[in-house]
């Protein structure tokens, strides 16, 4: 059994942090589903694990880059064309008063 209880409060917080608005129906559906998925996934507890997390499967370290003359990107307009709304070159977003 999963010890993590995903109550309505938690779902509410998750949806706020993830910036994903959910309807009451969706909240209930996801809550049930998540409990089921995580219960099944709790078999990972059976594995004998070491103390170290495996973040990278390759051995590369210290990939640094020399500072040099800037190389401006040559298709800035193609980036700007995707802006949702523009004004004087700025991206327009809601105000925050």
């Amino acid at each position: 059994m999963v010890e993590t209880i995903i109550d309505d409060n938690v779902i509410e917080r998750v949806s706020e942090i993830a910036r994903l608005k959910l309807s009451e129906k969706e909240k209930e559906k996801f809550r049930e589903e998540f409990e089921r998925i995580l219960e099944e996934f709790s078999v990972v507890d059976e594995i004998k694990v070491g103390e170290k997390e495996l973040y990278y499967v390759i051995e590369n370290v210290n990939v640094l880059r020399k500072d040099s003359e800037p190389k401006p990107f040559n298709k800035i307009n193609d980036i700007k064309n995707n802006f949702n709304k523009k004004e004087d070159g700025f991206i327009v977003v809601p105000r925050n008063l």
């Binding site: 010890e3 993590t4 995580l38 996934f41 990972v44 004998k48 694990v49 070491g50 170290k52 997390e53």
Partner: peptide, 12 residues
């Protein structure tokens, strides 16, 4: 409980 544990298990 989840994220860190999964990464530890990943080494296995």
């Amino acid at each position: 409980r989840w994220y860190t544990k999964a990464l530890k298990a990943r080494s296995a």
